[in-house]
Structures are given as C-alpha cells and as structure tokens.
Nucleic acid binder design. Structure first.
Length: 427
RNA sequence: GGAGAGGUGGCUGAGUGGUUGAAAGCGACGGUCUUGAAAACCGUUAGAUGCGCAAGCGUCUCGGGGGUUCGAAUCCCUCCCUCUCCGCCA
C-alpha cells in the first residue's frame, strides 16, 4: 500500500510513476483516492468535534450526578448529539472503506533505477554467468529425459490431479528432495538465513498483507469451507511472520529462508506452453525473505540476488540476470531482478528466481514496523527472492547434465545428498 | 466436535458502568549521587489518526466487530485466539 500522505502531497509524481508501469487509469484512480480521503477527513473532523462535546458532557454528568443534581437537560443534549454522531460515523466509515478498497488495488511505485518499459521487451540484462553447454548430440527436453529414465510421470500425475502436476519417482524424487535440502543448507550455512517451516494454508489477512489479495484472487487456490488459500509462495507466510509487530532496531536485518510447495492456478495461462514442468500448478521452492531498515534495502537486494545466483554457479548452470522494467515489475515490488537459467532442451532461458525489494509496500499492509533510535516507529522494508524455484531448476539440471546415452549426471554439490548415486540411468 | 476458563500497556498484574489511556511491580531510558559502577532517590516510558506555521488541542484503540447507555476495559451479542477436560485422530 502506498503512503496516503505521499498521494496527498505529490499526486502528480504518484500518477507519473504508476503510469510508467502501464497503469492507464492512474490519474482517475488517484483523483478518486484523493477525493475519498478529503471527504473522509471532512466528516471525521465534524464527527470528532461532536464526540469531543459529548465526552465533555458525559464527564460533567458524572460529577453532577455524584452531587445528586438533576441532569435531564444535559442527557437530552447528549442524545441529540449522539444522533448526529451516528450519522457522521456512518459517512466516515463508508468513505474509509472506499478509500481502503481503492488503496489496496494500487500497485507499488517503481524505483527510480528501474528502466522505463512497456513489457518484458523493456527489461535489461545486467550480467551473464558461464556459457550455454555444447552437446555432441541433440539435447533432449526434460520430459523425454525424465520419462525415459522413469523418474518423471506426467500421465499418472494427471490421473491423480490433472494437467500441470508432476509425479517424481525413484531417483527423480530423491533428486527433488536433494535439491531442497541442499538449497536450505546453502542459505542457512553460508548466507546467514534462518530456516523456517511455515504453514501452507494462509488466511485472508496474510494474503492481503503481501499483496496477493484482493487483486489476484483468481490466481489462488481457495478452500471451499474456510476462508483460506493455498500458499502461492513462501513469501506470503514468511513475510507475515511479523504482521502487526513493532521490531527492535537491533533485531534488523532479519533473514529467513523457507521451503514450501507453491500452488498456483495459472488462470489465464491457457494456451501458453504447458508441456513438461515449466509451468505447473504445484512446484517446490526455497524462498529468501528479508526484513531490513529502509536505508539498507537496495544493498540488501543486491546481496540477495547474489545469494540466489550462487545456487546456479554451484550447480554449474549457465544463467543471466535481468532487471525488470517498469512495465514488468510485480504488483508489490519497487525493483526486481529475475534470474534466468539456461535450459538446453528448450533452447531458452527459464525464470528460476525473482528477487524483489518491496520497500514498505507490504510492511504498510501488514503493519510491520521497527522502533528507531529516535524512538519513532517506521515501516521496515521487505524483500523476497526465490533461492530458487525448483521445477525449472530441475529442468535445467536434467537438460544440462544429460548424456548421449540418455543418462543424467548428478552435479557435484548434490552428491552428498544423493546417497551415493552419481548418475541416473534407466532402471 | 462437546463442556469449561481466559484474552488489559515491553512483561507481570489490578481494575464489574462515571475525570481509568488505564493502579502497582518489573524492565527500559534520562537525571542526581559516584573516580567509574552498583545501590538509593527523582523523572520519563503505547499506538494510530485529524486540525494547526507552531505551541498545542481533539478523536480512536484494554483480542476483532457490533449493541445497550448521557457515559463501557467493565453490561449484552458475535467472531477469533489461548488454556483445561472429554471425544476423534497422525
């Protein structure tokens, strides 16, 4: 959520920044918000004045009654005021609700360092690591590799759930588990993150806190009998750990990492390439989340991105880092780096990480603050980054480490996690 | 799921309708004293929001929401959460 004061004081700036994201109706939305805000305050001032008067009478009545005096006139006056207060309270409430509703739908403002652009074509590559591997043979796609090795079974996954789900088997299941464990170990042992294992079912308030709701309801899996959602990313439960809290300054920065499965309906993705495990309804992910002081958040974003890149470097996978342009950054983010790994069987880069600085956008929604040295409470900045998403990482591993005979070598760093298995061959 | 007991400031814990936004203790911060520290003593110590150039003033908040009343932390309704017992279950 944006700061209403910023909107009041610099509406043109806000409209300009929102428009840079491609919001066509930014002017109208901001005008509407300013109007709600203004009216709400006008009603609230009137209402507060009446309340003040009623409070004064109430105290007076108390005193007089204690003295045994007659208070009929005063109670009559108070009742009269009470009626007006009820009326004004209703007006304040409806305007507040409308304001809130509008505010929750406004995305974050892109940071000044973000390139202006309309869509992903406007993104800029910041760096590249390694090279696309060369093969003596024509590299296969992971769905062929996986099915021939008997480690991935899309048909049976569909039987259980539907399309867009994965059944890992044997060494394939082991590989998924190895990746999860290795990622958690890497980030906790070498990058200073504290491991957490959060709930996967999320209530409405938490979903609002990180920005999934109310705008992206259709993207989420929702329970039928309770007002709960399946976590679309660990960012949601983990960023909400400190909801409604005031942290001590010396607690910051806080680094958390968490493994969770991620559930996404991918509504609207029909027609896009859906073969294999590149776009699925359930995938595993190890997520990095930071709570930091505002003045450090952009340094922290760089560090977090480097931490995520390390995953690919250690696995020996070629990748590039892309800075998203204004038209492509996510709803809650002010600045985002995507990391895209090379998948030889696809002859394409696949997004496996998205590292974002949400600044105080989520902290405002979730009301997460810290008490500064001056005693003032300020909103923390919240960052999140995939470290990394598994299904696509798995694709890159299979396709990069495939051999001419159809087997797949296990990357060096995963060997301790694979129980002695050095390569996966058809069983 | 059933029955019961609870949810008060950073913490412990008073408070069953009238200057209670809230006693007291602890903790924290500042000061006095001290070479320094401790002890002792004195003082300060929630958040949000609005009006105002400011000083300051007002409103709201005792789990959330609603109600009764001139007036609610205190009474009523409802929801959430915690604890105990029973049931069920991994």
């Amino acid at each position: 959520m944006l700061d209403i004061k910023l909107i009041r004081e610099k509406p043109d700036f806000v409209v300009e920044r929102l428009s840079s994201r491609g919001a066509k109706d930014a002017r109208a939305v901001i005008d509407k918000i300013i109007d709600f805000d203004k009216k709400r305050r006008e009603f609230a001032v009137k209402c507060d004045n009446f309340k003040s008067e009623v409070n004064r009478w109430a105290k007076e009545i108390g005193k007089l009654k204690a003295q045994g005096k007659d208070v009929t006139d005063l109670t009559a006056r108070s009742k009269e005021l009470g009626g007006m207060i009820t009326e004004l309270d209703t007006l304040v409430a409806t305007h507040s609700a409308q304001l809130e509703e509008a505010m929750l739908l406004v995305p974050n403002l892109p940071h000044e360092s973000v390139p202006i652009g309309k869509d992903s074509a406007g993104n800029s590559e910041v760096r590249r690591w390694g090279e696309a591997p060369k093969f003596e043979f024509s590299p296969k796609a992971h769905w062929d590799i996986g099915e021939q090795l008997g480690i991935l079974d899309f048909a049976r996954a569909a039987k259980i759930s539907g399309s867009g789900f994965i059944l890992y088997k044997g060494a394939g299941a082991r590989l998924e588990r190895a990746l999860i464990n290795w990622l958690l170990d890497l980030h906790t042992r070498e990058h200073g993150f504290t491991e957490v294992f959060p709930p996967f079912l999320i209530n409405r308030n938490a979903m609002i806190g990180t920005g999934q709701l109310p705008k992206f309801e259709e993207d989420m899996y929702r329970l039928r009998d309770e007002d709960m959602y399946l976590a679309p990313t660990a960012e949601v439960p983990v960023a909400n750990i400190h909801r409604e809290e005031i942290l001590r300054e010396d607690q910051l920065p806080i680094y958390y990492c968490a493994y969770t499965p991620c559930f996404r309906r991918e509504a609207g993705a029909a027609g896009k390439q859906t073969r294999g495990m590149i776009r699925v309804h359930q995938f595993d992910k190890v997520e990095l989340i930071k709570f930091v002081k505002p003045e450090t958040s952009y340094d922290e974003l760089e560090k977090m991105t480097v931490n995520a890149e390390r995953v690919l470097q250690l696995l020996g996978l070629h990748y590039r880092v892309v800075l998203l342009c204004t038209g492509d950054v996510g709803f809650a983010s002010a600045k985002t780096y995507d990391i895209e790994v090379w998948a030889p069987g696809q002859n394409a880069y696949l997004e496996v990480s998205s590292c974002s600085n949400c600044e105080d956008f989520q902290a405002r929604r979730a009301n997460i603050r810290f008490k500064g040295a001056d005693g003032k409470n300020r909103f923390v900045h919240i960052l999140n980054g995939s470290g990394t998403a598994l299904a696509r990482l798995y694709v890159a591993v299979l396709e990069t480490y495939q051999q001419a005979d159809g087997s797949v070598k296990i990357p060096e760093v995963l060997l301790p996690y694979m129980g002695g298995l050095k390569e996966i061959r058809p069983s």
